[in-house]
Design a protein around this nucleic acid. Structure first.
Length: 573
RNA sequence: GACUCAGUAGCUCAGUUGGUAGAGCAUCUCCCUUUUAAGGAGAGGGUCCAGGGUUCGAGCCCCUGCUGAGUCACCA
């Protein structure tokens, strides 16, 4: 790929050459093992400045700022844990007559973004900052592109921050380097997952892996991605959920199974939806959804206390969320009654539709009872549940994989966990009656025929598994991305995914053609594919000019010469 | 998908009624041995997102497109 370099990029390439000419490898192979992380030095030296440990310290990292004052300089070096200031005094770094390492290598040819290793001793500057005085400097890796320079003043105000979301998401590596908070978010994400896994393992539940490529995409209502397996010559779908496979494992006799899974849904993208996202699903035998509510709130309390150092409160967009168990529990019927005064109990589809109309909620003919109730709830109730709240007992039509409620067959034994007005977790007393399950799937088929393109497929093998018998089981799924958003105070899913899905980057072909190349290009554009010799004759260029221009175009990937039985042909690409 | 806003130097952003393209940081040169948004003096750096149009003249006005953000709709 040919592209023009900015002045700064050219400058850095020149420095690269200069280093090589001085016999310094800008990309050395040898390992460079630091004795301390920056943070170890800062905290350790504070505690024990007299210790001899600080006489000989070795660190490595990226140069983040350079403050040169003639024969002495300060730089900030950033390692994986944080930053530390390094003091480079010319005569300390270069005690002999030879001062090139300071004057030339450091001052002229090292830039912000380069990786270096430093050894030296720790001291405190006049200004009181713990600093490493360098007695050696090793070039570890040269950076050829300038990093955005983010500056902070004494009050912590940030200047010239690297903020453009598109740039940040496309070049997450840069985002991570210059925006400290970004790294923290992803570290917290991993700690959330680790805390959850630790909690499940305490119960001896088994972490498992189930297929991502599935012949029938089941377990949720969503449009799947489709792909094709060549050897089998069949379509395969990327999973939209792992529920049906995990339940097969409960049939197979495990006490409890869970999976952190990437799911894929071929739907719109916005600040709460990415085409691939992470879900944790867990299934436990001989339990019901009441048990699962207790389990879920204990688990979340554990997760929050783990990442917050014992605190169960989290701040989200200025609102304080409290994850201290137990959470509030409200049935869906009660929730709707509370917020609209309308009682959904025993109402027909027509009555519900009329109620929607009264409340100013738009409906469509394809909506069944379940969907209508869901609309009312989503419109009038959902946003009100800011603190963690279990909404229970969903209408049977909405929950084809869930047991009917033991007290009222109109409802199911299901709960969703609402936090900050959004659904975070979803759980059932799992339907294990194979005949009921088959009927529910068939009802979904009818919805699908009515125009609901998300209605579920019938998974015959799953039904067969149920026919062999599944113990009473409760299952729960939780959206890891959304949970992470809430626990890290981020409003967008893109902030909690390292590499969110983006539209393809537009690559502008930037080329300079000389006159002959332009001539050739224009002619080809007009004629399309043509025999090589015809083109040559038409242009009337000398052999040398012709050859050079043609090779120029080919090199830029603009044209292609093809040899066939009929002779040589040329065409534009 | 609809609407609103935005796209100018490596980064963050100004840009007057339509009249030669600006600042800070970064870069380069010089000075500076405990600075810290280091400082001082000087210099270079631009496809003003792309393509059309209006105009004597467009970063600015109009149209189309691309990209992003926000709101809504759809969607777990």
């Amino acid at each position: 790929m040919s592209q023009s370099l900015s002045e700064q990029e050219i400058q850095r390439r020149e420095s690269l050459q200069a280093l090589r000419q001085m016999g310094i490898d800008p990309y050395p192979a040898a390992r460079y093992e630091a004795s301390h992380f920056s943070t170890d030095i800062l905290s350790g030296f504070e505690a024990d400045a007299e210790a001899t440990e600080w006489e000989s310290v070795k660190i490595s990292g990226r140069i983040m700022t350079k403050r040169i004052m003639g024969k002495a300089s300060f730089i900030d070096v950033m390692d994986s844990k944080g930053r530390i200031q390094v003091y480079l005094n010319r005569d300390v770094l270069c005690p002999g007559e030879e001062k090139e390492l300071y004057n030339s290598v450091f001052k002229k040819h090292l830039d912000i973004g380069d990786f270096i290793g430093i050894t030296g001793k720790v001291f405190r500057t006049k200004m009181g900052e713990v600093t490493l005085e360098a007695d050696s400097l090793t070039v570890l890796s040269k950076s050829l592109k300038p990093l955005p320079i983010v500056k902070k003043d004494e009050e912590g105000n940030v200047y010239d921050a690297f903020t453009d979301p598109e740039q940040r998401y496309r070049m997450r590596y840069v985002d991570l380097v210059v925006n400290d908070k970004v790294k923290d978010t992803f570290i917290t994400r991993t700690r959330i997952i680790n805390a959850m896994r630790e909690f499940f393992n305490r119960y001896d539940y088994l972490e498992v892996e189930t297929p991502i490529l599935q012949p029938i995409p089941g377990g949720a209502a969503a449009r799947p991605f489709i792909t094709h397996h060549n050897a089998l010559n069949i379509p395969l779908y990327l999973r939209i959920a792992n529920e049906l496979y995990l339940k097969r494992l409960i049939v197979g006799g495990f006490e409890g199974v869970y999976e952190f899974a990437k799911d894929f849904r071929n739907e719109g993208m916005d600040r709460t939806h990415n085409p691939e996202f992470t879900v944790m699903e867990i299934y436990v035998a001989y339990k019901d959804y009441f048990w699962m509510m207790d389990f879920t709130e204990q688990m979340l309390q554990h997760v929050v206390k783990t990442i917050k150092g014992g605190d169960s409160k989290v701040s989200l967009g200025g609102v304080e969320l409290n994850f201290e168990a137990p959470f509030a529990r409200v049935s869906m019927r009660q929730a709707i009654l509370d917020h609209t005064g309308f009682d959904i109990d025993g109402k027909s589809e027509a009555e519900l539709r009329a109620a929607c109309a009264d409340m100013g909620i738009e409906t469509e003919p394809s909506m069944g009872k379940g969907k209508l109730i869901d609309e009312i709830f989503g419109e009038k109730c959902e946003p009100n549940y800011i603190q963690p709240t279990f909404i229970t007992d969903y209408p049977v039509e909405m929950s084809p994989l869930c047991k009917k409620h033991r007290d009222n067959p109109e409802y199911t034994e299901r709960f969703e966990l609402m936090i900050n007005g959004k659904e975070v977790a979803n759980a059932y007393s799992e339907l294990n009656d194979p005949i009921d399950q088959r009927e529910r799937f068939e009802a979904q088929l009818q919805l699908s025929e009515k125009g609901d393109d998300e209605a579920m497929f019938i998974d015959q093998d799953f039904l067969r598994a149920l026919e062999y018998g599944m113990p009473p089981t409760s299952g729960m799924g939780i959206g890891i991305d959304r949970l992470t958003m809430m626990l890290t105070d981020n409003a967008s899913i893109q902030e909690v995914l390292f590499f969110p899905q983006m539209k393809p980057e537009k690559t502008v072909k930037k080329v300079e053609l000389n006159d002959n190349e332009k001539l050739l290009f224009e002619r080809l554009k007009a004629e399309g594919r043509m025999p090589l010799n015809d083109l040559k004759e038409q242009l009337g260029l000398s052999n040398k000019q012709w050859d050079k221009s043609l090779k120029g175009l080919n090199k830029l990937g603009l044209s292609k010469v093809e040899k066939t039985d009929e002779g040589l042909f040329i065409e534009l690409l």
